[in-house]
Amino acid sequence: KKYKIKVYVKDKKTKKWKKIKEIEVDTKEEALEAIKKLPPNYEVKIVP
């Protein structure tokens, strides 16, 4: 079972969220580790 991490950042001009990358991992633990490495201003969604 794979997890997709969708990473969004808020556009300063439009104030809208835009997706900047998608990370695919195998476990939820890996997903949480990957999220920890991202800057705090990123919004993250984990999709099972």
Rank of each mutant, 00 (worst) to 15 (best):
K4L: 12
E22C: 02
K6C: 07
K1V: 12
Y3P: 00
Y8S: 01
E29Q: 11
K4C: 13
K18S: 05
L32W: 10
K13V: 14
E30P: 00
K37F: 07
E30Y: 02
K45I: 10
K18N: 06
E24Y: 13
P39L: 07
I20N: 01
I35C: 03
N41P: 04
K21I: 10
K12F: 10
Y3M: 07
D11R: 04
P48V: 13
K36I: 06
K4F: 09
W17S: 02
P40K: 12
A31W: 04
D11L: 04
K28H: 15
E29A: 14
L38C: 04
N41W: 10
N41Y: 07
V7L: 08
L32T: 09
T14Y: 05
T27Q: 01
V25Y: 14
A31E: 02
I35H: 02
V44N: 03
K18H: 07
P48A: 11
K16Y: 05
Y3Q: 01
E22Q: 05
K21T: 14
D26W: 11
P39Q: 04
I35F: 04
K1I: 14
V25H: 03
K6S: 13
K16F: 05
E24P: 07
W17V: 02
W17G: 01
K45D: 04
V47H: 10
V25L: 06
K36P: 03
K10W: 06
A34R: 09
T14H: 06
K19S: 03
K45H: 07
L38P: 01
I20C: 03
D26L: 09
L32Y: 13
K16G: 04
K2L: 11
I5E: 00
P40Q: 12
K10Y: 11
V7P: 00
K15G: 13
K10H: 10
I46M: 09
A34F: 15
P40L: 07
I46R: 01
V44S: 06
V7W: 04
E22H: 03
K15A: 08
P40G: 09
I46K: 01
K15L: 08
K36A: 04
Y3E: 00
L38N: 01
K2C: 08
P40E: 08
E22K: 01
K36W: 04
K16T: 06
K4M: 14
I5V: 12
A31L: 11
L32F: 14
K4I: 13
E30W: 01
P39H: 07
P48C: 10
P39D: 12
K37A: 08
K16V: 05
P40S: 10
Y8M: 02
T14R: 08
P48Q: 14
I46S: 01
Y3D: 01
K28I: 09
W17K: 04
K36Y: 05
P48H: 12
K6L: 15
V7D: 00
K13N: 11
D11Y: 05
I20V: 14
A31M: 11
I35G: 02
K16A: 07
K6W: 10
A34H: 11
V25D: 00
Y8N: 00
E33C: 04
T27W: 02
A31G: 05
A34M: 14
E29D: 15
T27E: 03
T14V: 03
E30M: 08
E33A: 11
N41S: 13
K28A: 09
P48W: 06
I23C: 04
Y3S: 01
K21M: 15
E33I: 08
E43N: 15
V44I: 12
D11K: 04
K2I: 08
V44Y: 13
E33M: 07
I23E: 03
L38Q: 03
I46G: 01
Y42Q: 08
P40Y: 07
I5M: 06
K28G: 04
K18C: 03
I35L: 07
K21Q: 11
K15W: 02
K2S: 10
K10E: 07
I23Q: 04
T27I: 02
E30V: 03
D11E: 05
K6G: 07
E22G: 01
K6P: 01
P39E: 05
I23G: 01
V9G: 06
K4E: 03
D11V: 08
K10D: 01
L38E: 02
K15D: 11
T27V: 02
V47I: 13
Y8V: 01
P39N: 11
D11Q: 05
E43I: 12
E22M: 04
V47W: 10
P39S: 09
K12H: 14
E22D: 07
Y3F: 15
K16Q: 07
V44A: 15
K45Q: 08
V47D: 06
K4D: 01
V25G: 01
K12I: 11
K37L: 12
A31C: 15
K2P: 08
K37R: 15
K1Y: 15
K18D: 02
I20H: 05
K28N: 09
V9T: 10
P40A: 11
K1R: 14
I23V: 05
I35Q: 03
K28E: 14
V7T: 01
K13G: 11
E43T: 15
I35Y: 03
K21L: 10
K36E: 09
E33W: 03
K19N: 03
K37E: 10
Y8Q: 00
E24H: 15
E33K: 09
K15P: 02
I46P: 02
P39W: 04
K15C: 06
L32A: 13
V7K: 00
K45L: 11
K18G: 03
A34N: 05
T27G: 06
E43G: 15
V7Q: 00
K37S: 13
E33Q: 13
W17H: 03
V47G: 06
K21A: 09
V25W: 04
I20W: 08
K15I: 02
V25Q: 01
E22N: 02
K21V: 08
Y42M: 07
T27M: 02
V25T: 08
N41G: 15
I20K: 07
K2Q: 14
K4R: 12
V47C: 06
L38F: 14
V9P: 00
Y42G: 03
P48T: 15
V9D: 04
V9A: 13
T14C: 03
K16H: 06
I20M: 06
I5S: 00
K1N: 14
K4G: 02
I35A: 15
P48S: 14
K2M: 09
E29I: 10
A34V: 14
D11C: 05
K19D: 01
E33F: 03
E29G: 06
I20T: 03
D26Q: 08
V47S: 08
E24A: 12
L38K: 02
E33H: 08
P40H: 11
V47M: 08
D26N: 15
K28Y: 14
P40T: 10
V44G: 11
E29T: 07
N41M: 10
Y42C: 13
T14I: 03
L38I: 08
K18Q: 09
K16P: 00
K36V: 06
D26T: 10
P39I: 04
